[in-house]
Amino acid sequence: MSPGTETIADPVADPVVEHVDEDRPRTVASAAPAADRVFRAVVRASGLLVLLVMGGIGAFLAYQAIPTLRVLGWSFFTEVQWRPEGGRLGIASVGLGTIQVAVVAILIAVPLALSVALYISEYAPRRLRRTLIALLDLMAAVPSVVYGLWGFYFLQPQIIYLARWLSTYLGFLPFFHVDTDVHAATWEQSKYTSSVFICGVVVAMMVLPIVGSVMREVFSHAPQGEREAALALGSTRWGMVRSVVLPFGRGGIIGGTMLGLGRALGETIAVVLIISPAFDLKFRVLERGGNTISELIALRFGESSPFQLSALLAAGLVLFLFTLVINMLAAVVVARSRSGAATEI
C-alpha cells in the first residue's frame, strides 16, 4: 500500500529496455516528509496509549484480585455467602445468579431476535426495511435504566400471572417450582415478584436488538444467486429460508447469540432495580430473590474495606473473564461466517 513498495515501470524507458539485460525497478523509497513523521508518531502514540489504558485495566483488575485469591483460595469460588465481617466471601451464589439471568434472557431473546431478523431480511416490504433496521438500532440505544423502570413498574405486575401459571402447571420441573401453595385461595403475589425470571425478561429486551442485528446482517449477505436458485426450483419462501438463508447464517446466529450472552452477563441497572438480593444457591427462577455479580458490585462498593474492595475487584474480574471469553468466541464465529475483505474499486 505504501508508495515505496510499488514497482514502477517507466514508460519512456521502454525502448531502451531491449538493450539492457535486466529490467530493474527504480528504487523510489524516499524519506517521509516531516509532517508524515509527526503524523505517524502521534497516531502510533495514541494507539499505544489506548493499548496501555485498556491493557492497564485488565492488568489492574488481575493484580488487585491476587490478595483476595491468595487469602481465600478456592473457597472464593465455592462460598455462597458474602459476609466481609466474618471473612466469608464467595461468588458461588452471585455467579450462579448471573448465569441464570443471562440464560433466561438468551432463551427469550434468541427466538424473538431470529424472527425479527428473518422478518426484516426476508418478509418485510422492501421500502420498510430501512425504517425497521433503524427501529432495531433504536431499541439497542434505549438506556438500560429505562428498560429497568419499565420492567419494574409495567411488566412486573403483569408477568407475575404468567409466572404463577408456569409454576402451577409446570411446577413439577424443578426450575419452575415456587415454594408456595399454588392452590391457595389467595395467592402470594410477592412470592413471584423480583425474581430472576422477570430480570431475565427485561435483560432479554436489551440484548434482543444486539442479537437481532448481528443475525440480520449475516442473513442479508446470503448469496442472491442461491436464493433465486432455490425459488426457481420451486421452493416456497420458507423452504428458501431453510435451505439457503439459515445454513448460510448459522455463524451469525451462533455468534449473535453469544454476543448477546456476553452483554446479558454484565447487565447491572435493570437487575438492581428489579431483583431482591438473596444469597442462596437455588435454581428456582420464578421465585423471589436472586443475585448477580454486577448487582453485588453496585450494592457493596460504598461500604467497602480494602479487603472487600479487593474481593469486589476479583468478582469483577471473573465477570469480565466470562464476557471476554464469550465475546472472543462470538467474534471468531461471526468472522468465519462472512467475508471480511475490504471493498476495492
Partner: peptide, 28 residues
C-alpha cells in the same frame, strides 16, 4: 492506515475491552 508491530495487540485488546461490563469500568 499507519499500522506497525503493535497493530495486532492493540486490535486484540480493543476488541477484548468492548466486552468490559460497564459496572467493572466504573469500579476501576
Amino acid at each position: 492506515e499507519v499500522r506497525g508491530p503493535l497493530t495486532r495487540p492493540v486490535r486484540t485488546v480493543v476488541e477484548a475491552m468492548t466486552a468490559l461490563p460497564s459496572i467493572v469500568a466504573g469500579l476501576f
